[in-house]
Write a protein that binds this DNA or RNA. Sequence first.
DNA 1: ATTTCATATGAACAATTATTCATATGTTTG
DNA 2: CAAACATATGAATAATTGTTCATATGAAAT
Lengths: 121, 121
Amino acid sequence: MQDTEIECCETVEVHEDLLKIVNETMPEENELYDLAELFKVFGDSTRIRILFVLFETEVCVCDLAQALNMTQSAISHQLRILKQNKLVKNRREGKSIFYSLADDHVRTIIAQGREHLEEED
Amino acid sequence: MQDTEIECCETVEVHEDLLKIVNETMPEENELYDLAELFKVFGDSTRIRILFVLFETEVCVCDLAQALNMTQSAISHQLRILKQNKLVKNRREGKSIFYSLADDHVRTIIAQGREHLEEED
DNA sequence: ATTTCATATGAACAATTATTCATATGTTTG
DNA sequence: CAAACATATGAATAATTGTTCATATGAAAT
C-alpha cells in the first residue's frame, strides 16, 4: 500500500473508483511500455508505406527501395524495426530477401486508424 | 508519368505489379502522413495510461494527474495532443474540466495492439 | 473586485529517432 | 577463391518529442 491521500479539486466520490481503476484495470507497467513501443512502429510514414505495399504482395528490399524511392539502407533500417516488432517476416531466396506481413492485426490496426481519420469533421 | 526504369536484383515480373500497387492502392501522401501522426499519439505510455483510465470513467485533469502520479502540466500537455487528434473530448463543470473518450476506434486499436503483443513467442 | 482554484500554454532541455554515409555480411557466379 | 550483388549494420547528424518550470487564462468564492 501507498500514501494515497487525494484532496484535489473537490471531486470526492470519484477518487476510490479511480484508484480501483488504476490498480485493477490498468495493465502492468511493462505491457503499457510494450504497447506504446508497438504503436511507435506505426507512427512513421515510411513504415506505413512499406506496410501498404506488403498488404498487396511479398517483396524484396531492393524493389521496395525503388518503389518507395528511398535508399536501400533507409528501407533496410525500417524493415529491421518492423521485424523486431513481428509485424513483418522474411525469407531468403538466393541473394534476395523477401519480406511479407507477419500478422493480420496489422491490417486491422491500420484499417481502424483510417476509419478514425475518415470520421473527422 | 515518370522515369521508372527498374533494373535491380533480377526480379523481373514483380515490377509492373509493384508499380500498380504503389500507384493504385497506396493512399495519398497526406493520408499516409495523417495515419502516422495518429499512431504517434498512441506511441507514448503516458497517453496510453490516460486512455486506459478514460476507458473506465470520465475524469478531470487534476484527478488524472494524481492517479497517474504526474504533474498537472504534463497531463495537460498530453490531453491537448489527445484532443487535437479527436481521441478525447472534454466538458467544463465549474472550475474543473472533465475528459472522456471521443471515439470507439480507440478501444479497437488498443485492443488489437494488445492481441498482437499476446501472440508473441 | 480580488483571491483562489483548476487548467492551459510557452520556452527550454534532455532524450529519442529517421536518414545518410561508409562498410560489413553472406550468397551466388565466374 | 575472387568478384559481384543484395542486404544489414554502426556511427553521426538533424529533427522530433516529453517533461519541467514559470506563468497565463478563466471560473468561482469571499
